[in-house]
C-alpha cells in the first residue's frame, strides 16, 4: 500500500470511518503477529501482544505523522507491546522456563531433542538468558532489520545503549550456541 493511500485511510479512521481501520492494518496483520511470535515463541502470547498492539494503534492513531512510514510505526508499537510483555513475563515465568530448558540437558538425548521440538527448541535455547531489553534489541536489529537509530527511537534509548545490548545479546547467543553444539555433537558446527 502506498504512503498516500495509508495517510488517506488514517484520515478516514480519524473522521469516524471504523471500517477503514481494518483496511489500513490488513497488509501488516501477518507481520504484527509474526513479530510477536518470533519474540515469544508462543502462539497464544503472540496473539495477546498483537491484540494489544492493534488496540494501541487505534488509540494513538491521531498521533501518527502522515509523512512517516506506517509500517515502521505499527512495528514499533508491536515491539513495545512485546517488550512490556517480556518484562512482565520475566518475573512470572522464570522458574517454569528454567525447568523446561533443563529438559534438554537432563533427560533428552540430542537425537530426541532434534526430532521433537527442533528449531523452536534451538531458538529457545539460544535466546535463553537474554534480558527483555537484550532480546527486543536483538529482534529489532537482527531479525526485523531495524537500523540502530530506528531501534533506539522505538525503545526510547540511546544508540550507544542499543549497541551495548546488541553486543551482549550476540555474545550470549554465541555462548549458548556453543553449548548447543556440544550437546548435539557439533551438528551446527561451522
Amino acid at each position: 500500500m502506498r504512503m498516500r493511500d495509508e495517510a488517506e485511510l488514517v484520515e478516514r479512521v480519524l473522521r469516524g470511518d471504523e471500517s477503514s481501520f481494518e483496511t489500513l492494518l490488513h497488509p501488516y496483520r501477518k507481520g504484527i503477529l509474526n513479530m510477536a511470535y518470533q519474540i515469544t515463541l508462543n502462539a497464544e502470547d503472540a496473539k495477546d501482544i498483537s491484540q494489544e498492539a492493534v488496540v494501541k494503534a487505534y488509540k494513538y492513531l491521531k498521533k501518527f505523522q502522515k509523512t512517516k512510514n506506517f509500517k515502521n510505526w505499527i512495528y514499533k508499537i508491536t515491539a513495545n507491546a512485546a517488550y512490556d510483555f517480556l518484562r512482565k513475563q520475566r518475573s512470572d515465568r522464570n522458574l517454569i522456563n528454567e525447568k523446561e530448558r533443563m529438559g534438554l540437558e537432563s533427560k533428552s538425548s540430542p537425537e530426541e531433542y532434534y526430532h521433537n521440538r527442533e528449531i523452536k527448541e534451538k531458538i529457545e535455547f539460544c535466546l535463553h538468558g537474554l534480558s527483555p531489553k537484550e532480546k527486543i534489541v536483538y529482534m529489532l536489529r537482527d531479525i526485523k532489520e531495524f537500523s540502530i537509530k530506528e531501534a533506539s527511537q522505538t525503545l526510547n534509548i540511546s544508540s550507544q545503549s542499543v549497541r551495548t545490548h546488541l553486543s551482549r545479546a550476540r555474545r550470549k547467543i554465541r555462548s549458548q550456541f556453543e553449548i548447543l553444539n556440544q550437546k548435539t555433537g557439533g551438528a551446527n558446527e561451522l
Binding site: 511470535y37 528449531i119 531458538i123 547467543i173
Partner: peptide, 10 residues
C-alpha cells in the same frame, strides 16, 4: 539464528 527465527511463523 536469523534463519531459524524467521522460519517460525504463525
Amino acid at each position: 539464528t536469523r534463519n531459524w527465527i524467521r522460519s517460525e511463523t504463525t
